[in-house]
Design a binder for these strands. Structure first.
Lengths: 204, 204
DNA sequence: CGGTTCCTTGAGGATGATCAACGAGGGTGG
DNA sequence: CCACCCTCGTTGATCATCCTCAAGGAACCG
């Protein structure tokens, strides 16, 4: 298996030896909220986490999903600002927490981890640039295709068509569109053979 | 004068002692293009630079403006991806260039600079998060206000109203709107006293 | 004063959002 | 195994809004 630097990941034994603790969260539980300040480094042992923010109309914008081994919200530990998004679990999830001070010490003491961290930061800037570029571009189909591509790039399977493991609503939250729009655009894309919809399931 | 870590900046003497060279660019000259790979660390000695990308319709989205002392595009030096935007000068500009390898060596050798660099990366992620949050939010006035605020935060003057040093077109490119929309929203904001337009000039 | 860039206005149209209602599937408990 | 519920997908009608296109005016600069 190839090793990716895309998302920060620290060896669990190391984390525990530095006094990290594992905590279990129920499905849909809040891990941290917007406006809170960052006190911990979080890394998923098992489960899924969503970072997102919502506006006054209740419309939500998903920043990213994180899975086993991924760290999230770590960049906030470097700056003196509150979180720009909230994080909640998508299912029952176990997460390791390490205090900010100790994390910063680790980053200072272990050059390899530090490099990985820096690269993950740069990577995140890059992907956020790409995202805003796409979203500004308006066209719903364009946005959805871009989303499907980034998702497909992550999953290594290169079979003809992959089952897209997101609900229409989740795609809407990622692309800044509304559910109905996603549905309508997807079925148009089905007609033009850009995706396949079988039994309400979306394949790309 | 306060010292900000928001944007990376390396002492010029240090840069030159490492073999950096200064290069003069004419107004509107291209520094690097989308799809190019990053080979240099760039820092502005004197002038202004704009990073942006354009879509097929010719619509442009401005990522950021940079001024004296600012570095730009540096995060690309850490990742194996091409630039996500292009950079051009807004006026005649002098820029120091240092090779990627030497920059990475500096980052490795000088812990203070490295910290500054890491913080600037985190800062950039934060501001990009804020931007996409706002843009997703749709409402033109909301977007424009957010843009004016980030601009006002940067300029230290806290006088009642500041002259906004951007054309309507530039605001449009920052907010993902069209010129006419910016104009119309701004004059509505003038009516409701949220901005002031005197002699076609915008004050906020 | 001529040219260039920027600002402004209006009319018209396209399109995504909104609202409302219904259908389909999957899981759970009796 | 059936009945129920809950989430997710789907569709149509209507609406508001921003974009588009076109034209003209104002400011600025050499």
């Amino acid at each position: 298996m190839e090793y990716y630097f895309d998302i920060m990941n620290i060896d669990l034994d190391l984390l525990f030896s530095w006094g990290a603790i594992a905590k279990k969260y129920k499905k849909n539980e809040l891990i941290f909220d917007e406006e809170e300040t960052a006190h911990f480094y979080f890394q998923i042992i098992e489960g899924s986490v969503r970072m997102y923010n919502s506006n006054d109309d209740g419309k939500e914008f998903t920043e990213d999903f994180y899975h086993n081994g991924d760290s999230f919200g770590d960049y906030s530990l470097l700056i003196d600002k509150s979180y720009s998004s909230k994080a909640t679990t998508l299912k029952d999830t176990t997460i390791v927490k390490l205090s900010k001070i100790k994390f910063l010490k680790i980053i200072e003491d272990y050059p390899l981890l530090r490099n990985q961290f820096m690269i993950s930061l740069a990577q995140k800037i890059y992907s956020k640039s790409e995202t805003s570029k796409v979203i500004i571009n308006q066209k719903p189909e364009f946005r959805i295709v871009a989303f499907l591509n980034t998702f497909k790039r992550k999953s290594e399977v290169c079979a003809d068509r992959i089952l897209v493991p997101y609900t229409r609503q989740e795609i809407a939250n990622f692309t800044g569109l509304r559910v109905e729009t996603v549905i309508r655009v997807c079925s148009r894309m089905n007609d033009s053979n850009k995706v396949k919809i079988i039994n309400h399931k979306l394949y790309y």
